[in-house]
Design a protein around this nucleic acid. Structure first.
Lengths: 158, 158
DNA sequence: TCATCTAGTTCCATAATAGAACCTGTGGGA
DNA sequence: TCCCACAGGTTCTATTATGGAACTAGATGA
């Protein structure tokens, strides 16, 4: 059976999962954000088999999250670079990392954490805030169809 | 071949994906955050077949993201409720929703957006900030092993 | 020149997904 | 009380996706 497509869903969460909701895509983006660009780098970092890596990379290119370009080292090979669309998955990765840090046990001694590069201090926990700055919990939000928004057409986010 | 396990990974992003990195889990959590609790509610909302829904729900219970309890309507059935661990996936869902809103096209007229329930205004875009409050982009962060943290043992997040 | 590296492709066994049919206990109405 | 629809599954089968290994073609480099 064909995997169910969510690309036409009204919910933006479902549409996102349709694009990057598989085993490897987000890990590839994570590595790409760390600076990896070459097929062999991803292969080594992820420990994924080549056929799957090939398919994932091509899918990410098709979706505009990665793009290929001549390798920066001047060789005849090509490399994979994040597009702006790919880089904007940053917040998703931070959220996943923070949740994993707090909720998924890691082998002792090898736990990693995201820090700001300059001061090497942990990044702040992500906060969901209303447009007026109020901190929001899960129960204080809801999804509405665009057009049912209140007052001024503040097209902030989604 | 057994699906590759990431549960022992040092990277918290990988560990999170090991837990909820599949097609349906996050959509179930999304619906649960909206208040859904019953098997049939999830089934109707997601359009997923029963055998898969059963497996996903049981897996989420096993992982402590959902828990079962006697149904709130007093019937003999049971319902699935989010645990604190499950509710803390809120930031992940907001990040996914914001990315989808900005980067994944939706069928015209049916786009949805997350708002704060009180004022019906879009939630602010998530911001990644350093412990001193500086706004951070993808290039200004890195992952380090815990123990290589600078100075004071500020155990903020991950 | 020749071995090695890069970036794949192909082949196969196994696991996951989707859909449908079937099953068991509940709840509610006549 | 009887009966039927509903809730919440389980079982079966077809189709995909995944993982591992083997194989390949072009590029590099000693």
């Amino acid at each position: 059976m064909r995997r169910k497509s969510l690309s036409g869903a009204a919910c933006p969460i479902a549409r996102t999962l349709d694009v990057i909701g598989d085993w490897w895509s987000l890990l590839i983006v994570r590595d790409a954000l760390r600076g990896m660009r070459r097929f062999s780098e991803f292969e080594k970092s992820l420990g994924v088999s080549k056929n799957i890596l090939t398919r994932r990379l091509h899918a990410l290119v098709r979706q505009g999250i990665l793009e290929t370009a001549p390798a920066a080292d001047g060789s005849a090979y090509r490399e994979y670079r994040l597009t702006a669309k790919g880089r904007s998955l940053f917040q998703v990765l931070v959220a996943l990392g923070q949740w994993g840090h707090e909720n998924a046990a890691a082998p002792a001694g090898s736990r990693m954490i995201m820090v700001d590069r300059e001061h090497r201090r942990p990044v702040r926990k992500l906060e969901v805030r209303a447009s007026d700055g109020r901190l929001l919990g899960p129960g204080e939000t809801m999804m509405v169809r665009i057009g049912e928004l209140a007052g001024a057409s503040n097209t902030n986010q989604g």
